[in-house]
Amino acid sequence: MMNETEKTQKPQWAMAIDLDRCTGCEACVVACRIENNIAVVGPEESARDRSMNWIRIERYMEGEFPDVRVRFRPVLCQHCQEAPCEPVCPVYATYHTEEGLNAQVYNRCVGTRYCANNCPYSVRFFNFFDPQWPAPLEKSLNPEVSIRTRGVMEKCTFCIQRIRKGEEKARDEDRAVRDGDVIPACVGSCPTKAMYFGNIADSNSEVARLARSNRAERLMEDLGTEPRVIYLRKRDQA
């Protein structure tokens, strides 16, 4: 039986990504697309820079042949605790939940796109047109996730549908959430196990432990956005 404060205190969700393990293989990108019903916009729209990837692998190539260095960084919504996107939304379509998630409510969104313009991480995606699912492709859609319409913003939710199920499971078992209860699609698919997800408020969780690592850094920490995604620097000898 867990104690009362543990039960009432909301979990604070966070993700840790070990850049030393990440190989840039993009399994997470497809896992996310399938789990979250992210539309394939097609070649014409992609050519206009409108393709949507809630998580993407950013590739930075530096140096000249033969001394070329490549770095990969998976970038998803950082679920900032001081999110620049939140105050600018005129209708509260994006706001902060008690679990530290940066929420996007699709059917409240009017589509000012201000949030995307104020996101330093460029992780917000706009539905310029209605998504197309030529039959029978619509059968592969996840019934647990909204299908967005044109004119609304969308982005990573940390797989809220899985968070809800994990929390429900913990509640059924009358305990606080623990590592393994919630595994977002990207984390689950990662072939090198470079991603971790859990409750950072629980100091014994894996993410809390990794957040204390001396390799831990957050993307553009200097902006004061207080992201909930923790990157673990590469352990390069160099």
């Binding site: 206009r48 796109r113 995307a116 917000r124 995606f125 706009f126 310029f128 047109f129 209605d130 004119g151």
Partner: peptide
């Protein structure tokens, strides 16, 4: 009728 995609906006230029 069609959506704001008929404009030239994209990611990251949303305005």
């Amino acid at each position: 009728q069609e959506g704001i995609g008929v404009w030239g906006l994209n990611r990251p230029v949303m305005w």
